[in-house]
């Protein structure tokens, strides 16, 4: 359910750009999705396959680039990546300060697509 709404939006965006480019077929769609989002690749592709039936984007492969959650430490000015927020607290890996702020991980973009 969660991925369906997002996939509909992706699909509409893809069709709009395909029409603008006068494309006959969409081969791949590259997405950039931040680590803070829990969108599952499998469900995005499954819904996309369903939504794209009988359109120029039928059969297109979604390439998903996951952008890691990166934080900046305000004490020592180092940036650090957290692969899973659930692993522990959001503290600096260098100086252990909790004065940190989010730099990336919220991305939610369609980057490009390959068309014929």
């Amino acid at each position: 359910m969660h991925e369906l709404v997002v996939t509909k939006s992706i699909h509409q965006l893809v069709l709009r750009h395909a029409q603008k480019a006068d494309a006959k077929r969409v081969l791949t769609v590259t997405l950039e999705i931040g680590a803070l989002s829990d969108l599952q690749t499998e469900w995005l592709q499954r819904y996309f396959d369903r939504l794209s039936r009988n359109t120029v984007s039928e059969g297109a492969i979604l390439n998903i680039t996951r952008v890691p959650a990166v934080f900046l430490c305000k004490q020592c000015c180092q940036t650090f990546e957290i692969s899973s927020l659930l692993d522990g607290d959001l503290t600096c890996q260098q100086c252990h300060s909790s004065e940190v702020s989010l730099v990336s991980g919220k991305e939610y973009h369609v980057i490009n697509m390959e068309v014929l």
Binding site: V6, S9, I10, Q12, L13, H17, A21, A23, K24, L27, L31, Y108, H109, V110, I111, N112, M113, E114, V115, L116
Partner: peptide, 16 residues
């Protein structure tokens, strides 16, 4: 036919 790469860089849910 030649494969073309189209740059998009658009936010998902941009319609909303």
């Amino acid at each position: 036919e030649e494969i073309r790469l189209i740059d998009i860089k658009e936010e998902i849910l941009s319609d909303n």
